[in-house]
Write a protein that binds this DNA or RNA. Sequence first.
DNA 1: CAGTATCCACAATGATACTG
DNA 2: CAGTATCATTGTGGATACTG
Lengths: 116, 116
Amino acid sequence: MKDNRSGCSVEEAMRLLGGRWRLLLASYLLDGPKRFNALRRDIPAISQRMLTIDLRALEEAGLVKRTVFPTVPVTVEYELTVDGRRLEPVVEVMKQFGLWVKSRQSDDSVWPANLA
Amino acid sequence: MKDNRSGCSVEEAMRLLGGRWRLLLASYLLDGPKRFNALRRDIPAISQRMLTIDLRALEEAGLVKRTVFPTVPVTVEYELTVDGRRLEPVVEVMKQFGLWVKSRQSDDSVWPANLA
DNA sequence: CAGTATCCACAATGATACTG
DNA sequence: CAGTATCATTGTGGATACTG
């Protein structure tokens, strides 16, 4: 690991994943395919606009597949691609780090599991 | 803005590490203590201002220790704390993901040109 | 050497209204 | 249901000059 200056790769990853929502979206999509409004319910704080923008960015990066079912009204399903599953370790390490940060912030060591 | 006050650990982690430079700084500090201008040389693209801001943020989070040596002129050394070493797996997973992203981009396989 | 202090550009995100 | 469109606001980072 000393072999390279990790610089650009870390930057590259952060450019793609660095926003407020993208890794969060990935973490929910790791559960399986989800529809647009299901994701909105998972992440109540996200605006419709940002949900669209970030899903499209992940789609363009080849990490998420968007499927439109021509029902009335239409339903759209999002799921991680095979490539997108490479986000799993990223999500996992961020989750663990975030949990640790939060556990430090208040010394109550118990956090509800569903916040993870 | 609706507030999911409880937050999520992934969000929490990204709030602390999500900027353009912080994980990059961490990756260089994993090599050992470094002085201010040494970090500037490691990351030529960073401005003095952002270097200061991000180092202080990491310091405030308890991840980096800042030591001032009363030489003339002063020298200041930054190093990861024990807690800061928890960034190692985060840096590593980001590095790996970034490398993969970059390797895909140089693949001339099926790829839409841009993601910024 | 290791910063501060201003000022500024632009990107990121949010609020709200509207639609096929 | 799953979006678009528009406008406003906040956040992030950069340029430049100055300093103990």
